[in-house]
Design a protein around this nucleic acid. Structure first.
Lengths: 225, 225
DNA sequence: GTCTATAACTAGATAGAC
DNA sequence: GTCTATCTAGTTATAGAC
């Protein structure tokens, strides 16, 4: 057979190899802790290639984040679209909305052990470095999904004021991110009562908790400012 | 008057000045981003003093964290003690337990604008770097409060299994931390519907949401594995 | 487009004078 | 205890050969 080097088209894509290696290393150690040398060594490309393709380390970080978060947010919007179409103008059930937020993350994490690590760690970074890293690119992506889910939740929970919907959506995201990033801590603290690697159980519990929180009695309103 | 240099006892405490400067800088920029040179410059002490007093940068980080988190956790335990004493053997109300978790953080933040920044940023860092930094010192501090609150919540919510209490306490912490760290994002996204600088309102909303989540219907249990 | 080589810089840590 | 001076090792980024 005429097996030439051109037989591996994916391996020739230096850019992709850099993104793959960076994704892994960022997930393992965080953005700051990883050097371009580590990335290019693992990717088996030259050090200078990073600056050639991404301009700087910061540019690489943004592209890695976008590549992970983009598909998740797309799937979220898609699930919400389907739910709203099916509801035919009526409000979508709270649990269904929540599933559209959470499920795509679980799906991404279940693609591989590596994906699980990446999503977890990147979620953690997003929590603490929301302002500094990802200057705008990511902001807009999140803004779109936030607006859509906010509108859907407002319809499902007409008793809540607009401000309250914002607050509670915020708490919901917090619950999700903390569950994602600190799952190992939870397993550790619980002395075996909470099992690792049971994503479906985690999703169930998360939906139950956040649905309860979203539906909760309003905070006292009569109190004077 | 015999005003000698010994008139400023606080200024001679090099160790304290380092901790103060490090706390501010870590809060502003994160642990990694701050160099020992920045810290010692702001503290107006010599570069070598950090290694003299704390052994290494890592040792300094641990002490800064402990100094911020320690008082908060002490106040939490104290509030829970008081509530349990008053309940005289009966279960403490969920909202009261939650206030004992949240209130001390608000109190610490309200001590000064600087405190607010510090607690916010350090909370963020704790979320994303829980494993790497603070190897054990902090772990034990958090473990104690986690155990106490877990027990109290189990008593208040007898319908929940031990595992469910863990899950929901976890989500509760996540809601709190996200509210703390991403409050500015929320203010921004809400277009003025959520106001900054209203810690009491934030506390009310947080308690309402998490109490609702904690009391929510159990996740479906009959489903086969 | 891809590489080598290196520039230009900053980091944390420490030895040894005072 | 506190300082200066320096060491070693790491970083990002780039100029220029191929």
């Amino acid at each position: 057979m005429s097996v030439s080097e051109k037989n591996q088209p994916e391996a020739s894509e230096v850019r992709e190899r850099i993104l793959d290696a960076a994704e892994e290393l960022f997930a393992e150690q965080g953005f700051d802790a990883v050097s371009l040398r580590q990335i290019t060594t693992r990717a088996e490309v030259n050090l200078a290639a990073v600056n050639y393709y991404f301009g700087s380390k910061g540019g690489l970080v943004v592209e890695v984040l976008a590549r992970v978060v983009g598909p998740i947010n797309q799937r979220r919007l898609q699930m919400l679209d389907e739910a709203e179409t099916q509801a035919a103008g009526q409000a979508v059930e709270v649990e269904t909305i929540l599933a559209a937020v959470f499920r795509p993350v679980i799906v991404s994490m279940n693609e591989s052990e590596h994906s699980r690590q990446v999503v977890m760690k990147l979620a953690g970074r997003c929590m603490s470095e929301a302002g500094s890293e990802m200057p705008e690119a990511m902001r807009r992506l999140f803004r779109e999904v936030a607006d859509r889910f906010c509108a859907s939740l407002s319809k499902a929970l007409p008793r809540l004021s607009a401000a309250e919907v914002f607050w509670r959506m915020h708490f919901t995201i917090g619950s999700m991110l903390y569950a994602l990033t600190q799952h190992e801590t939870l397993v550790l603290l619980s002395d075996g009562k909470v099992l690792a690697d049971d994503a479906e159980k985690a999703l169930e519990e998360l939906v139950a908790f956040t649905a309860g929180g979203l539906r909760a009695q309003n905070a006292k309103e009569g109190a004077g400012k």
